[in-house]
C-alpha cells in the first residue's frame, strides 16, 4: 500500500545568535520515514530532540531547509499559505496543552465547528456539533461551555473533536496525554485508537512517554539531537532495543512495583548542545557502552524495517546480561 505521508532526508536549520556571530542550529537532521493509512507512527524523544519541529515542518508551519515532504503522492514542502490550506483539511494537528490550545472566548460548540468555518465547508453546524461530541464521548450540553469549565481530559476530547472534524486522512498529535491524570490518559488513548480504527486514519503521535507509545503505536522512531537513532515496529523495539539510548529510555520509566528494583541504565544528565554536537556518534558522550571508534566515526542509520544507528547495537543477550548484573 502506498504511504499517506513520506518524509525524505528532511533538514531544518535555524539561524541563531547575533548577526556578527550567526550559528546554524540543526533541529532536524536527515530524517526519513513514512506513514500508511490505518497506522499509528510514534516519534519518541526527550525535550530538545526536535520532535515538535519535525511535526511543524510536516504541517508546513516551519519551512524546511532541505529534503521533501510528500502527502498523498504530492510534494507539499515549500508551499505557500494559500496552497497549504486545502492540504491542512486532510492533515490536522493536535497541539500540546489541552486547555491552552482552545480559545478561551469560544464555546465548545464554536470550537468544534471552527474547522468548517476556516475551510469554508458548507455543513449543518448544529448536526456536526452533535456528531463530533458524540464521537469523542462528550454530552451535548457541553456545546455551550467554555474551555475554563472543562477538566483536562474533557478539553483534550474537544481538541480531538476539532482535529477529526473534517475527516482528515492524517492526524499529528503532539503529546496527547501530557498533563493528564493517569486514569484519564487511558481514556484519551482508547479514544484515539478507536477513532483510528473506525475512520481508518493515519496517525503520528509525538511523545516522550514510552508507555503511551507501547499501547497505541504500530511503528516508532526514537529521536536524539534531531536524528533518528532507532526505528522499527513497536513490539520489536520494546522486546529488544538495539540502540543504547532506546535501552536507557526504556529502563528509565519506574513501574508501580515497590520490590522490583528496575535494572536501570543511568545516563549522565546533561544532553549536549545542538550548537556543539559531539564528534563521532552523537550519543557517545552519554553512552555506557561507548568504545574508541564511537568518538571518532559517525554511524549512519542502517537496516530496512528495523533501523539503528550504532556501531555496537545491543543484542538481546547483552541487555539481559546487564540486567542480571544490576540485580
Amino acid at each position: 500500500m502506498k504511504p499517506i505521508l513520506e518524509v525524505n532526508a528532511m533538514n531544518v536549520t535555524f539561524k541563531v545568535g547575533p548577526p556578527y556571530r550567526r550559528q546554524d542550529l540543526q533541529a532536524v537532521a536527515g530524517i526519513s520515514f513514512d506513514v500508511r493509512a490505518g497506522e499509528t507512527f510514534a516519534l519518541v524523544g526527550e525535550s530538545g530532540s526536535g520532535k515538535t519541529t519535525l511535526a511543524r515542518a510536516i504541517n508546513g508551519l516551519q519551512r524546511i531547509t532541505s529534503g521533501e515532504v510528500i502527502f498523498e503522492g504530492k510534494r507539499i514542502d515549500g508551499l505557500g499559505r494559500s496552497a497549504m490550506r486545502p492540504i491542512r483539511r486532510h492533515m490536522s494537528m493536535m497541539f500540546q496543552d489541552p486547555v491552552g490550545s482552545l480559545s478561551p472566548r469560544m464555546t465548545v460548540g464554536d470550537l468544534v465547528t471552527e474547522p468548517f468555518r476556516i475551510h469554508r465547508v458548507e455543513a449543518d453546524l448544529a448536526a456536526e456539533t452533535q456528531r463530533l461530541l458524540a464521537l469523542v464521548g462528550l454530552p451535548l450540553e457541553f456545546a455551550s461551555r467554555y474551555p475554563h469549565q472543562l477538566s483536562g481530559g474533557q478539553a483534550r476530547r474537544v481538541g480531538v473533536a476539532r482535529s477529526i472534524a473534517l475527516n482528515p486522512r492524517l492526524i499529528i498529535a503532539d503529546e496527547p496525554t501530557a498533563g493528564l491524570d493517569v486514569s484519564v490518559q487511558g481514556e484519551v488513548l482508547n479514544l484515539l485508537n478507536d477513532l483510528r480504527d473506525r475512520l481508518g486514519l493515519a496517525m503520528i503521535i509525538i511523545t516522550h512517554n514510552l508507555h503511551v507509545v507501547f499501547h497505541v503505536a504500530d511503528r516508532m522512531s526514537v529521536m536524539y539531537l534531531g536524528r533518528f537513532v532507532e526505528s522499527g515496529s513497536t513490539q520489536d523495539i520494546f522486546d529488544a532495543p538495539m540502540h543504547p539510548y532506546t535501552a536507557a529510555l526504556l529502563s528509565a520509566s519506574p513501574e508501580p512495583r515497590p520490590d522490583r528494583k528496575s535494572a536501570r541504565i543511568s545516563l549522565p544528565a546533561e544532553v549536549p548542545s545542538l550548537l556543539d554536537r559531539p564528534n563521532g556518534c552523537e550519543f557517545h558522550t552519554r553512552c555506557p557502552w561507548a568504545r574508541a571508534r564511537c568518538a571518532a566515526d559517525a554511524p549512519t542509520i542502517e537496516g530496512t524495517s528495523r533501523r539503528v544507528s550504532c556501531f555496537y547495537p545491543l543484542e538481546r543477550g547483552v541487555l539481559r546480561a546487564t540486567q542480571e548484573h544490576a540485580k
Binding site: V182, S183, V184, Q185, G186, H211, F214, H215, S253, P256
Partner: peptide, 24 residues
C-alpha cells in the same frame, strides 16, 4: 486498586483498550 491498574506502565502486553476509571 483502580489507580494501580490504570497505570499504563503496569501493562506488559499490548492492549487495544486500556483500563480507565469511568465517571467524574
Amino acid at each position: 486498586r483502580n489507580l494501580i491498574r490504570c497505570d499504563p506502565a503496569r501493562q506488559h502486553t499490548r492492549v487495544r483498550q486500556l483500563p480507565t476509571i469511568p465517571g467524574d
